[in-house]
């Protein structure tokens, strides 16, 4: 195998790897902000939380009051592994420091009806880096696909 052919074979995987590494390691963080106290009152009813998306910054002290408006509902925050449940008309409180950055789902913990397993909300701590990197990775993937030498001449 000649050196140019060897290089041409390796060029695409190397380019792909470089683009992937760039997409996964590019600095996307915002400058750190001063932690503040955040308060959310979430109304839970079949089969939604209102508000359904909570946004805080890393380090914020977060207090969530969960109010069940129809039947018993719960809340379980993925990865934080925090949970609480509230009887109808009652309030349950969760307090925690948002010390893990990223997007986390919270879900109902108490069987509350047909769509209980799909009663979900989102807690976003800081920018959603995974999503941003996934977008970059997708663009890098397309660039990689487009970067090719002319191929066959098959015609339909």
């Amino acid at each position: 195998m000649t050196l140019p052919k060897f290089i041409s074979i390796l060029a695409k995987p190397i380019l792909g790897l470089t683009l992937a590494v760039l997409a996964l390691t590019a600095p996307l963080s915002l400058p750190p902000t001063q932690p503040v106290e955040r308060y959310f009152r979430i109304e839970a009813s079949q089969f939604a939380y209102s508000p359904g998306v909570l946004q805080v910054n890393p380090g914020d002290q977060v207090t969530i009051d969960l109010v069940a408006t129809d039947v018993v509902h719960g809340i379980y925050i993925d990865n934080y592994e925090l949970q609480a449940s509230a009887d109808p008309g009652q309030t349950a409180r969760l307090t925690f420091t948002a010390d893990q950055a990223g997007l986390f789902r919270f879900r109902c913990l108490v069987p509350c009806g047909q769509l209980h397993p799909f009663m979900l909300g989102k807690l976003q701590v800081g920018p959603n880096q995974l999503f941003l990197r996934a977008v970059l990775l997708s663009l890098a993937g397309l660039l990689l696909v487009l970067w090719k030498k002319p191929l066959s001449t098959i015609s339909i």
Binding site: F47, A48, G52, L120
Partner: peptide, 8 residues
């Protein structure tokens, strides 16, 4: 998704 109205 987090959209209760859509689920219902």
């Amino acid at each position: 998704g987090p959209w209760g109205a859509l689920k219902n």
